[in-house]
């Protein structure tokens, strides 16, 4: 049965990919026995029978287990409302934020987290029937409030590219010896010893977003970083 695409082909919404006897993953839907793309994407042909479509544009769709970076948008009676770049609001309850029980009558929640604070959180539940459909927790290691540093916002569909195949890109980025936290919602937090490194790293991440669909990107980024490091060494 036919395959309608070639490797690295750009597909548009509605373009046929292959018949349903292929295994097609990514942003695709089935129409009349054929897989069609539902957004702008690049085709990856894995082998004889499997095809993957990599989206070039997309919005963040929250999933349980995702690590996200959010802003506190409101302080409520027993928790906080967060913006995690999803179409729904997220909720962090006091229970999921503090290790020891606290007395809600005497403790002002704003002393723990206030509006505008940035947190790394993990999504624990999604239920669209609730007022705040997304529930998050910060009660795990590597989660919690973020201080200082720089936040870079990129398109959520480019996040896998910033991480790279088996973490190859993130490995290259960590040559700068900075703290890098990648949220699945496309927010990336970077914190370096030197503020100039932060600005440089932010520009590199934006470049990865812009050139995500090109080949040999990891090597080019590695080259840029090595050049930057050697120039910085001379100063």
């Amino acid at each position: 049965m036919p395959r309608y695409v070639v490797p690295r082909q750009l597909v548009y919404p509605g373009d046929p990919i292959a018949t349903t006897d292929y295994e097609v993953s990514g942003p695709v839907y089935i129409d009349n026995g054929r897989y069609r793309s539902w957004c702008l994407g690049l085709v990856e042909v894995k082998d004889e029978k499997t095809i993957n479509v990599v989206p070039l544009e997309g919005t963040y769709r929250p999933k349980v287990g995702d690590t996200v970076i959010g802003y506190i948008t409101d302080v409520l009676a027993i928790g906080w409302e967060l913006d995690v770049r999803a179409p729904f609001s997220a909720y962090l309850s006091v229970h999921d934020a503090v290790l020891k029980p606290i007395d809600l009558e005497s403790v002002d929640l704003t002393t723990l987290l206030n509006i505008g604070d940035m947190v790394v959180a993990r999504i624990t539940d999604i239920d669209v029937t609730r007022e705040h459909p997304i529930s998050v927790t910060i009660k795990e290691s590597n989660l919690g409030r973020l201080e200082g540093g720089t936040l870079v916002e990129i398109s959520p569909v480019k996040v896998p590219r910033v991480i790279g195949k088996k973490g190859s890109m993130i490995g290259v980025l960590s040559m700068l010896r900075c703290e890098i936290i990648v949220g699945q919602n496309g927010r990336i937090f970077v914190k370096c010893g030197d503020v100039r490194d932060e600005a440089f790293l932010a520009s590199v991440i934006r470049r990865i977003e812009r050139e995500s669909h090109t080949t040999g990107l990891t090597d080019r980024i590695k080259e840029t970083i090595l050049k930057y490091l050697s120039e910085r060494g001379h100063q």
Binding site: P13, G14, R36, W38, C39, L56, E57, T59, S155
Partner: peptide, 11 residues
């Protein structure tokens, strides 16, 4: 809509 990455059956 396509530029925004919203899932579409077709343009």
């Amino acid at each position: 809509l396509a530029d925004a990455g919203i899932p579409m059956r077709d343009l």
